[in-house]
């Protein structure tokens, strides 16, 4: 029988200590700055950190699906697209000094 599920024993399940658990799970985005997962959860909501991440990922996927709607852009969306194109051209034309300043600004966003 052909089966595209490779791990019937579940040894690779993240929740059971497979590739997604341990220190490796704390490194995100393939070599970006390591991010320590917040596992404290939310006592007010009665949910664990993992449950909250799961719910956030669920709505992230729903948003991806909604964004794939093939309808044409509204005038406001088209304006945003035009602005983004212009800003990208400006980004590419930055001087080294401007690039350094922009890099600092972006790093500050992630702190």
């Amino acid at each position: 029988m052909s089966d595209d599920w490779c791990s019937p024993t579940g040894e690779f399940e993240p929740a059971r200590g497979g590739d997604a658990s341990g220190e490796g799970a704390r490194l995100r985005n393939r070599g970006e700055t390591p991010v320590e997962l917040d596992d404290e959860g939310d006592p007010m909501l009665g949910a664990t950190g993992g449950e909250l991440r799961m719910v956030d990922a669920f709505f992230h996927e729903v948003a991806l699906d909604d964004a794939a709607d093939p309808r044409p852009p509204t005038p406001a969306e088209q304006l945003a697209v035009d602005n983004l194109r212009t800003r990208f051209e400006r980004l590419k034309a930055m001087t080294p000094d401007e690039q350094a300043a922009e890099r600092e600004r972006l790093l500050a966003l992630d702190r």
């Binding site: 490779c6 579940g10 929740a15």
Partner: peptide, 24 residues
Amino acid sequence: RVILAAWAEGFIERDEVLAVTRLT
């Protein structure tokens, strides 16, 4: 279930989830 478990661990990008779940 394994996809949900990957999400709970913070893996959301498709290739990350494929890698940790071993799903095709």
